[in-house]
C-alpha cells in the first residue's frame, strides 16, 4: 500500500475555488466589455488587452522576483486589469494604461502582501493615481461611435450646469454617452451585477444600499429625473456592483456591507453635489476601503453561546 495521506478534517471540500469566483467576475464583466467595444470602437478592445496582459505579466514577474508562490492562475490579476481598463477613457495612451495596470497589481496589491491582503481596491487606486498623474488624458472623453473628443464631456459634468444638453434616458441606459469605457452601458452592468448576485459571488446588500443611497439623496437634492441621471451616470453602477463588492477591501458581514454601501453613497453624493470634481465614486470607495477594518470590527457578532465579557 502506498503511503496514506494524513490531514486535518474536513476530508471533503466544497466546489468553490478562487479561480472559479474570479472567472465568474470576468464573465459578469463581459457584457460591459462588449458594450465598450461596440460603443467606443476597437480601440476599447486594445486597451482592455493591454491592461489585462500587463496585469498578468506584472503579477507573474512580481511573484517570481519576490520568490513568493506563483498564483497568477487564480485569475485575480486578470480581473484587476479588466476592471481598470473599464475605468479608463478609450482614448487613453496605451503606455499610460499599461503603467496604471502595473501600478495596480504591483504597488497596490503585491506590495501589500498579495491577494486578500491589500487594503485598497487596486483598480480604483490605480485610477485615482492616473487621474492625478495624467489628468489631461484621463478626462478626455470621446463621443460614442466616433473618434472625436467631446468638448462637452460627461453627463455628470452637464448635470452640474446646463441640463438641456443631457442625452436622452434611453441612451443613458444603453451607454451611448461620454464616459469611461465600461461605465456607460447601464444595462450591461446590471446584467453582470445580477449574474454575480445570482451566482452567490457578491451580496446584494452593497450595491442596493450604495445605489439606493445615491438615488434617495439625489431625489431630495434635485428631484426624480435628476436622481435617475445620477444613478446612471459616472461610474456608479460599475463601482457599486464590481468594486464596492471586492472581497479584500470591503466588509465581510451583511451589516458591514450595509454600512459600507451607505457610506459610499453619502460620500459619492456629497462629492457630486458639492465638490469641484463631477465624479465621486472612486474616492468614495477608496475612503470606505480605508475604514473597512473598523467596520469589520464593529460588526463582529457575539458568537452563539459566547458569554459577554
Amino acid at each position: 500500500m502506498e503511503k496514506l495521506n494524513l490531514s486535518s478534517s474536513p476530508h471533503i471540500r466544497g466546489k468553490k475555488t478562487v479561480s472559479g469566483i474570479m472567472l465568474d467576475v470576468i464573465v459578469a464583466l463581459i457584457p460591459a466589455a462588449a458594450a465598450s467595444v461596440i460603443i467606443f470602437g476597437y480601440r476599447a478592445a486594445l486597451v482592455i488587452c493591454i491592461c489585462i496582459s500587463t496585469a498578468i505579466l506584472s503579477e507573474f514577474f512580481f511573484q517570481k522576483i519576490t520568490k513568493s508562490k506563483i498564483l497568477v492562475n487564480d485569475l485575480s490579476a486578470c480581473v484587476t486589469g479588466l476592471l481598470l481598463a473599464l475605468n479608463l477613457p478609450v482614448s487613453i495612451p496605451l503606455w499610460q494604461a499599461a503603467l496604471g495596470s502595473l501600478f495596480a497589481v504591483v504597488v497596490v496589491k503585491g506590495m501589500f502582501g498579495g491577494i486578500g491582503k491589500n487594503f485598497a481596491n487596486p483598480a480604483i487606486t490605480a485610477r485615482i493615481m492616473m487621474l492625478i498623474a495624467f489628468t489631461g488624458t484621463m478626462t478626455a472623453y470621446v463621443t460614442p461611435f466616433t473618434d472625436t473628443l467631446t468638448s462637452s464631456a460627461t453627463p455628470l459634468a452637464i448635470l452640474g450646469s446646463d441640463t438641456s444638453a443631457l442625452p436622452p434616458l434611453k441612451d443613458m441606459l444603453l451607454g451611448i454617452r461620454a464616459g469611461s469605457m465600461g461605465e456607460t452601458c447601464a444595462v450591461a452592468l446590471i446584467i453582470g451585477g445580477v449574474y454575480l448576485i445570482f451566482r452567490g459571488v457578491i451580496s446584494y446588500v452593497t450595491p442596493v444600499s450604495y445605489i439606493g443611497t445615491v438615488f434617495i439623496l439625489s431625489l431630495i437634492y434635485g428631484g426624480g429625473e435628476f436622481a435617475l441621471y445620477q444613478v446612471l451616470s459616472g461610474g456608479l453602477l460599475l463601482g457599486a456592483f464590481f468594486m464596492a463588492t471586492d472581497y479584500a477591501t470591503t466588509p465581510t458581514r451583511p451589516l458591514g456591507k450595509l454600512i459600507f454601501g451607505l457610506g459610499c453613497g453619502i460620500i459619492t453624493a456629497a462629492i457630486r453635489f458639492y465638490g469641484s470634481n463631477p465624479e465621486g465614486v472612486s474616492y468614495a470607495i477608496l475612503l470606505m476601503n480605508i475604514i473597512t477594518p473598523y467596520i469589520d470590527k464593529w460588526t463582529r457578532p457575539t458568537p452563539i453561546g459566547g458569554s459577554k465579557k
Partner: peptide, 8 residues
C-alpha cells in the same frame, strides 16, 4: 492558497 477575505 491565501485567504481572499470572501467571508464565506
Amino acid at each position: 492558497t491565501p485567504c481572499i477575505n470572501c467571508g464565506s
